[in-house]
Amino acid sequence: MNTTLIGKQAPNFTASAVLNGKDIVQNFTLEQFKGRKYVLLFFYPKDFTFVCPTEIYAFQEKKKDFEYRNVKIIAISTDSEQSHWAWLQIPKEKGGIYGVNYPIVSDINKTISHNYGVLSGDWICNEEGLMKSTGELISYRGLFLIDKEGIVRHLLINDFPLGRNINEAIRMIDALQYYEKSGEVCPANWIKGKKAIQASHSGIIDYFSS
């Protein structure tokens, strides 16, 4: 059975989130951006950890590059919105993520992570009929590029120790937007400004013979 989200509507959610690094809201939705913006949705395992802040700050440093491309960055973990808020108040040199101002969503019920296929661990029912977890129920490092129609066009899921390349996320956005504008497809290692391929047999021949 094909369970990938590629080419499908991104699962909507309504959840608590911290906006602008300080404001807690209760009804943050993905759907609000449909028809208006692309979304770069990324999951990370835990607040107050080691690899996670390097990624969170790396996305913040490139925030203007994403905004230039009409992309909304949204982060999610299974921590509470209060945990997110507390981490956001702590300076970088003390292990916090102060200064990050894109939305950080709380998936405290694990449902968003489950629906996107990035939740580690599992629930099982033992012989006594009691539910128990196997492994820690937190998010892998999932990344999803969602177009303006709400369709997932790219995804990447890393294990916990493996941080992501933010420039690669930008490259994929450029490739998607170039394809939408020109109808040409983007070959391996394509970057903005380089030659693409016309979506026809002759176009492929022209590309590889050039």
Rank of each mutant, 00 (worst) to 15 (best):
C125V: 11
C125T: 13
C125W: 00
C125N: 10
N126I: 00
N126D: 15
E127A: 08
E127F: 00
E128M: 00
E128S: 01
G129A: 01
G129N: 01
G129M: 02
G129R: 01
L130F: 02
L130M: 05
L130K: 12
M131N: 05
M131F: 06
K132R: 08
K132G: 02
K132S: 12
K132D: 07
K132V: 02
S133C: 08
S133G: 05
S133H: 13
S133R: 10
T134K: 12
T134Q: 10
T134A: 02
T134M: 08
T134G: 08
G135T: 05
G135Y: 01
G135D: 05
E136Q: 13
E136I: 15
L137K: 10
L137D: 04
L137V: 02
L137Q: 14
L137F: 03
L137T: 11
L137H: 11
I138Y: 14
I138S: 14
I138V: 07
S139N: 12
S139F: 09
S139D: 14
Y140N: 15
Y140S: 12
R141P: 13
R141A: 04
R141T: 07
G142H: 01
G142M: 08
G142F: 00
G142I: 11
G142S: 09
L143I: 10
L143K: 04
L143A: 11
F144M: 10
F144H: 11
F144G: 10
F144W: 08
F144E: 13
L145E: 06
L145V: 11
I146S: 05
I146C: 06
I146G: 05
I146Y: 01
I146H: 09
D147V: 07
D147G: 02
D147T: 07
D147H: 03
D147Y: 10
D147S: 03
K148C: 10
K148N: 11
K148T: 15
K148A: 11
E149K: 13
E149D: 15
G150D: 10
G150L: 09
G150C: 08
G150Y: 09
I151H: 09
I151A: 09
I151M: 10
V152F: 06
R153M: 10
R153H: 08
R153S: 03
R153N: 12
H154P: 08
L155V: 09
L156D: 15
I157Y: 06
I157L: 06
I157N: 12
I157F: 02
N158Q: 14
N158L: 11
D159M: 02
D159L: 07
D159P: 14
D159W: 04
F160M: 07
F160Q: 10
P161E: 13
P161K: 08
L162P: 09
L162N: 11
G163T: 02
G163V: 01
G163D: 08
G163R: 02
R164G: 14
R164K: 13
R164L: 05
R164Y: 03
N165S: 07
I166W: 03
N167I: 03
